[in-house]
Amino acid sequence: MSSQFLQFLISGITVGATYALVGLGFSIVYNSSQVINFAQGEFVMIGGMATVFLMAAGAPMPLAIALAVLLAVVIGFALGKFAIEPARGAPVVSIIIITIGASIFLRGAAMLVWDRNLHHMPAFSGSDPIDIGGAALLPQSVWVVGGMVIIVAALQVFFSHARIGKAMLATAFNPLAAQLVGISTRGMLLLSFALAAGIGAIAGILIAPITLTYAGVGIMLGLKGFSAAIVGGLGNPMGAVAGGLVVGIAEAMTAGYISSAYKDAVAFLIILAVLLIRPSGLFGRRESERV
């Protein structure tokens, strides 16, 4: 019984770590631009697909991964530059449609440039499960969770010590004041898109050996990551991480003990519950309307 619980927990934390990374991307972009980037899930897809195809073309895995992340970063930057920046000041709903359009566009491009099939990526360090109290732990799960922890730690250092990280944080708190002290808020917007795209791509690469990857893999992951960001409170990166883990574990437990049929509904039920109790997320700042 407890080995079963442990199995569900492992499964939940692994999936939750992916949601956390995607949610982190939503948060970073939202912080510096007040934009919800619905194309965030596509970077997960780009990371996985690009790695698979670069490896098929003969690149060794580490090189393929580095190039895939670089590709995502460039596309993220371009998205910010050519799609979001020109539309600054448009209503929220228009921006939502632009980013959804971007996600459809990127998916279409992936189907053309690569293909529409499912691809598998070899696990980083074998696929022989490790036995923990009767539950099977995949080495790749360790990579996923470890990768998440490292990225979170690195971001923490970046935001609190690096000059440019502090500038991003300042922009998030008060864009006008940040601009007044000489921070380029435009630059911060582009940087945040590139950074979020890179993190999304890493998530996609880490998870690909477990879930398989294909052009449409980003759709549900994007929505779940958005849920994670909202549960944690938009614009709070650590909140997104907590939100991701909460959603992932709740899903695995539901699938295990209640019904796998409603697994996907759990994330959204949590969202509705959280929003009813705290309309700006668990750890979010309250927004006030300026008249």
């Binding site: 020109p86 448009a90 959804i100 359009g101 971007a102 996600s103 459809i104 566009f105």
Partner: peptide, 14 residues
């Protein structure tokens, strides 16, 4: 199809 649909959505909004 998918590519063009996405491009149309984006460019009209922009």
């Amino acid at each position: 199809e998918t590519l063009v649909l996405g491009a149309v959505m984006m460019s009209v909004m922009i």
